[in-house]
Amino acid sequence: MDLYRDNILDHYQNPRNWGSLTGSAVKVSHNNPSCGDSITVSLKLDSGKIADIKFTGNGCAISMASASMLTEYIMGKSVTDALVVKREDVEKLLGTKLTLARLKCALLPLETIRQALVESAKTRLPKPS
């Protein structure tokens, strides 16, 4: 049960930043049809930094723990710094190497957060006239 280190179980059972933001927050949902996992991330930026991020979702321990850890990790970071977070960082956060079969679970939150970052950045650009 190597994969289920205490920190993973802890984040799975007591997810940080659980919930959703209202108002001007950008919301992005992704799912992984191959196992029925789904996640919704909401994000608020302030002066190019992540002012607040929350998530809700449904999935295995790996995907939910990964979401919880990632939201904690990027809170307060600049969009540029947050956009370069990659697979190895997720593995570091989880504290374990991921097998091919579980990679998709762990990376679903990262993909969702990335898209939320990109969309938030877009909404701040002036509208093309």
């Binding site: 049960m1 196992c35 999935g59 321990a61």
Partner: peptide
């Protein structure tokens, strides 16, 4: 989750 069951 079924993946967690199978993994354990």
């Amino acid at each position: 989750h079924p993946h967690d069951v199978a993994q354990i």
